Computed example of a mutant assay.
Amino acid sequence: MATQPSSTPGRRPARLSRDSIVNAALTFLDREGWDALTINALATQLGTKGPSLYNHVHSLEDLRRTVRMRVVGDIIEMLNTVAQGRTRDDAVMAMASSYRSYAHHHPGRYSAFTRMPLGGDDPEFTEATRATAAPVIDVLASYGLEGDSAFYAALEFWSAMHGFVLLEMTGAMHGIDTDAVFTDMMMRLAAGMERR
């Protein structure tokens, strides 16, 4: 008699919930990438069929949006944690290093984070992505920056990190001491904040 396929031989698939599906999607993203994330592909990973996921997520877009929101929340928490008790150059380097590490350890999640622009069609996601600037703005206050100056500096900070990470992840910096270049870049940014 044939047995039903399962993600682990001899065991039934784990009970599904919205959280378990989102967690599985996060793992899937880092292994397979954003474009590979479909309801059926994720269901296969979970040892079930696509229609059973629709009891917990409304659509693929609902799943992807929820994943993006979770990633944004994780990045905000990470930045707040590493910046706690730090100021100025020490805080800038800690945040930049953690951001870079997150992108390399979670490439699929990082891709999800950067999929929608700051001024996209989803107001809640737009607000959440803007909130990722808050930990950086708090650190920039230790340089005396505030208001629009702090917000623009936070965008510059993110742009530099994001651009560098993308160049690294696409192999454009092969053969270069990227750690040294990254540290130098961030210290130049910090020096610019100091001069402001």
Results as ranks from 00 to 15, higher is better:
T126G: 12
E124P: 03
R100E: 05
A133W: 09
R100Q: 08
E156G: 15
Y152I: 15
M173V: 10
A131P: 03
T114I: 13
Y110K: 03
L167T: 12
L155F: 04
A134P: 01
Y152Q: 14
V136K: 01
A112F: 01
A112C: 05
T129H: 06
L155D: 07
A150P: 00
A180Y: 09
D177C: 08
A150H: 00
E168S: 07
M161R: 00
E124Y: 09
R130G: 09
V136H: 00
S98W: 03
D138M: 12
F157S: 00
W158T: 13
F164L: 04
F113R: 10
Y110A: 07
A172W: 07
R109N: 09
V165F: 00
M116C: 11
E168T: 09
S97V: 10
A153G: 05
H104W: 07
I176V: 15
D179Y: 03
I137C: 06
M161E: 00
P107S: 01
Y102Q: 04
A112Q: 03
D148K: 11
G147H: 06
L118H: 11
H105R: 14
M116I: 13
S142H: 06
R100L: 13
A112L: 05
S142M: 07
Y152R: 14
D177K: 06
A180M: 13
D177T: 09
R100C: 01
R115Y: 09
D122C: 10
A180E: 15
A154Y: 02
A134S: 13
D148E: 14
F164K: 00
A96T: 02
Y143Q: 05
G163E: 06
P107K: 03
F157T: 00
L145V: 06
H104V: 09
R130I: 09
